[in-house]
């Protein structure tokens, strides 16, 4: 189970400004979902190695060759706000 306080904490970590109504609904739904996920706790997994990637890839390296980057104007074309040829954001608090 998960409390409303925990829901607010997790929402804050995820930078989601949930409304009070959403917090309450989320508490109920997450509770049900987490309970169903708990099923994996019944397995004995002692000594089982984890799988992070189904092909078991480790470090994949490539030659460090310079190439043309995305032009700045292209990158900024889709930005919500631009100032002095840079991404603009509100006051950093």
């Amino acid at each position: 189970m998960i409390s409303e306080e925990q829901v607010r904490h997790v929402a804050d970590l995820a930078r989601l400004g949930l409304t009070d109504e959403e917090v309450s609904k989320m508490r109920d739904q997450l509770g049900v979902i987490l309970e169903s996920i708990e099923k994996i706790s019944e397995l004995d997994l002692e000594g089982v190695p984890p799988t992070a990637n189904p092909l078991n890839l480790t470090n994949v390296l490539r030659p460090d060759t310079p190439r043309e980057p995305l032009p700045r104007e292209e990158a900024l074309r889709v930005a919500p706000e631009v100032m002095d040829n840079m991404f603009a954001v509100p006051r950093i608090d």
Binding site: V78, A79, V89, P90, R91, D93
Partner: peptide, 15 residues
């Protein structure tokens, strides 16, 4: 910040 929707706010965290 870089693309997509932005809902304006005073500070960056609230944004």
């Amino acid at each position: 910040v870089r693309y997509g929707l932005r809902v304006p706010a005073d500070g960056v965290h609230e944004m």
